[in-house]
């Protein structure tokens, strides 16, 4: 299976939705080629609006389109759409509970050479804390297509975290994204690897490494960070007795924090976080950076062994 970036799903899925009669529009901030909303702009120019380099205006124009009855998707990069326009997302989109779907690309360190200023590692935290915001982190291209469809079909604000780098497939065309569902992608009995986004495939690779040492790892794709599937996470933790959260995001406020909240309240077990450890990113190639920041399958497997050690 060839690798594909989750961002490749964006423009093409909007084209499909429009073709199916869904009243989608898109507002971009001068990054239509990078985010792939250009594909939608080419097919439906009357439904595409470029705000130029003005992300705050992009979010609120989308909000106005939603007030006028449209399902409004927004582009730009994760760092700008969530950070620069945070007040617009909070006070207009979420406070008014509008049909605005943020689907920015270039999240995380797999952005690569552009460096720390453009590698958004705090977006899940920022979006997760907003009342009414749903946060989806698709694990591959197929999940991204379905995440966009789910957001279009479900009223209210959504955040869909898309990435720049081509990544291996975890699923295929048959995958359906269910809001608030964590997917068990590999069953196991000794330790739970709860992952999202690009880390799902790495958690699966880590499970293979652990299997060599006769450790049976269960891998869960926590594709919806909010609302989180507390039942599935607690059930897996009860079964295995130890959990590792894996994300291409800061260890503060993201998936690791969300899983810790669930475990703390429902199923306390030994727990570890794999993620970027409270630092900014830096320039480099995506795979170099994943190694540099400790986000490889080996790092995940090592964290799992430490959790097992603490359990026993």
């Amino acid at each position: 299976m060839s690798k594909r970036a989750t961002r490749e799903a964006f423009g093409s899925t909007l084209v499909q939705l429009a073709g199916e009669g869904v009243d989608v529009v898109a507002v971009e901030a001068d990054l239509s080629k990078s985010t792939t909303t250009a594909t939608f702009a080419d097919a439906y120019p009357e439904r595409f609006f470029n705000a130029g380099i003005a992300e705050q205006n992009m979010i609120n124009v989308a909000a106005g389109l939603a007030v006028a009855g449209k399902i409004a998707f927004t582009g730009s990069f994760a760092v700008f759409a969530t950070g620069r326009a945070y007040d617009q997302v909070r006070n207009t989109v979420c406070y008014s509970e509008l049909d605005v779907k943020l689907a920015p690309t270039h999240s995380g360190i797999t952005v690569g050479p552009d460096g720390g200023s453009h590698q958004m590692l705090e977006d899940i935290a920022l979006m997760r804390v907003l009342p009414g915001m749903r946060v989806l982190v698709p694990a591959d291209y197929f999940a991204a297509c379905e995440a966009l469809r789910l957001a279009a079909a479900t009223p209210g604000p959504f955040y869909i975290r898309l990435g720049r780098a081509a990544i291996p497939a975890v699923y295929d065309e048959s995958f359906r994204f269910e809001l608030g569902k964590a997917y068990v992608v590999r069953e196991g009995s000794d330790v739970t690897l709860a992952a999202c986004g690009v880390m799902v495939e790495r958690a699966l690779a880590a499970a293979e490494l652990l299997a060599v040492d006769s450790i049976s790892a269960e891998v869960i794709d926590v594709a919806t960070i909010k609302p989180i599937d507390a039942d599935a996470i607690a059930a897996s933790a009860a079964k295995t007795g130890g959990v590792v959260a894996c994300e291409e995001h800061s260890i503060i406020g993201g998936l690791g924090s969300a899983v810790a909240e669930v475990l703390g309240e429902h199923q306390p077990v030994p727990f570890a976080r794999v993620g970027v450890r409270d630092v900014f990113g830096t320039s480099g190639e995506p795979e170099e950076l994943m190694a540099h920041f400790g986000l490889t399958a080996h790092h995940v497997a090592q964290a799992a062994r430490e959790v097992l050690h603490r359990r026993s």
């Binding site: 529009v25 507002v27 609006f49 705050q56 205006n57 979010i59 609120n60 124009v61 989308a62 909000a63 106005g64 389109l65 939603a66 007030v67 006028a68 009855g69 449209k70 409004a72 617009q88 207009t92």
Partner: peptide, 10 residues
Amino acid sequence: SIACGIALGL
């Protein structure tokens, strides 16, 4: 900005 979006969306 919101008013712009409403005007576009009508």
